[in-house]
Write a protein that binds this DNA or RNA. Structure first.
Length: 203
DNA sequence: AAGAGGATGAACT
DNA sequence: GTTCATCCTCTTG
């Protein structure tokens, strides 16, 4: 089932981030559709979250997307090299978002392995926020599109996969050490023991 | 107009 | 554990 618009409008981004685990991220390209199960996420909750681009309700051409209504994609370039994919959540004007950090390939794994220049069996295909976008073919051109639109090339589906409580892991977020106290918040969520989860921590 | 720095990944030692 | 590729965005002047 394609996740509906309402799903993304909750103001509780800390509940939505773990709820996205097990959902299917589907990308339709020119010739082919590829997909992967979300296995790692991070919540970003501006305005009070120092680690968020929209900290203090900072509004720039880039962060503008985060202020859109929930259900839009926020794609931006990191370190000039990698494109990172986020799900905007909450009502319009509240810049909450969820960074998708890893996926487990489901459909089109051959294509993804080719794009990543890795063997089919190599978890590096979907491990890490810059890697999964390369594997799935998510690019900056997908910024600000509506994930719940039946015509959208990027969608998120509920395929009935539920994560048992004892398989849900949490930790501090990755790569935000310079964000003061916000760096300590346990807003990273992942499926325990899943080989596609990034960072050292996946027990 | 110029410069600093970044929600990373890969290839090193 | 360390280094660096690479370029966009934002701030400052």
């Amino acid at each position: 089932m394609l996740l509906p618009r309402d799903y993304y409008l909750s103001t509780d981004v800390l509940a939505l981030a773990p709820d996205l685990l097990g959902k299917l991220l589907v990308v339709s390209g020119e010739n082919e559709q590829v997909s992967g199960m979300i296995v790692e996420t991070e919540a970003y909750r501006a305005p009070e979250d120092r680690a968020s681009h929209a900290f203090g309700n900072r509004l720039t051409p880039r962060t503008r997307t985060m202020f859109l209504e929930g259900g839009h994609a926020y794609v931006y370039v990191c370190y000039g090299i990698h494109e990172l994919f986020n799900v905007v959540t909450g009502p319009e004007g509240i810049p909450h978002g969820i960074l998708i950090r890893a996926i487990q390939p489901v459909r089109g794994i051959e294509t993804m392995a080719l794009r990543r220049n890795r063997a089919i069996s190599n978890p590096e295909i979907g491990k890490g926020p810059g890697c999964l976008t390369q594997a799935l073919g998510i690019e900056r051109k997908h910024n600000a599109l509506r994930l719940y639109d039946p015509e959208s090339p990027v969608q998120i589906h509920d395929v009935g996969h539920r994560i048992p409580a004892d398989q849900l892991g949490t930790s501090h977020r990755i790569g935000v050490e310079s964000s003061g106290d916000s760096a300590l918040l346990p807003w990273r969520y992942y499926i325990r023991k899943n080989p596609y989860v990034s960072g050292g921590i996946h027990q």
